[in-house]
Amino acid sequence: MTRTTTPTPGAARHAAAPVASLSRRRFLRTTLIAGAGVAALAGAGFAWLRRSPVDSLPPGEGIRYLTASEYHLFQHATAVLLPVQGTPLTPLSQVPVVQHIDHMIGLLPGHLRKQVGMGLTLFDNAAVVSGWHGRRFVDLETADAVQYFDDWSHGNTIQKALATLVKRFVYVAYWRDPATWGPVEFDGPVSEKWGLAYLGNAPLPDQQAVSQEAVQ
């Protein structure tokens, strides 16, 4: 079976839906007026000065659209959100999750790409203050990172939106890949596999059977 594993704009925008309609002004306004958002933004201000060991690392090979910090954020998020080791699920080494996300990000329209970038920066940096982790998301231990996601999932509107955004990108990038389907017995496309016949167009209606008078 030959199938593309290249992510599409559809999946990308689907993942980005939580911030899809937040305009730049509205995005900032929402963040600013939300109580925890103020703390998060303040945290982000401090955190931009807080370096991470991953800052000196380049993004992975072939990455075209993600910034280095976004790449590392998604690398960390993938490990946190998809702990498949020891399960029958397809190992992360066999699914290029962040490469898929890179393609998806590259297919977003410009205005949405900007908003996603702002959101990811906030999500990464706000961990310094939000939850008082004292470090950026990319440097959180797994348990703390899980807690961070969970805290944000029942936080304010913008926190919920961003936690959902990161999760959706990671989940879609993993599960859309046919390599992940076998272990959960998902059948995928079946019509060709089953040899189903095409029925073609329906025949023209028999105009005598339903008279025009009947509907006027």
Binding site: T4, P7, T8, P9, G10, A11, A12, R13, H14, A16, A17, A20, V172, R176
Partner: peptide
């Protein structure tokens, strides 16, 4: 479904 969102849906499913 992910492919179909792209090709068959309004705003590519978003």
């Amino acid at each position: 479904f992910a492919d179909s969102l792209e090709t068959l849906y309004e705003d590519h499913g978003s």
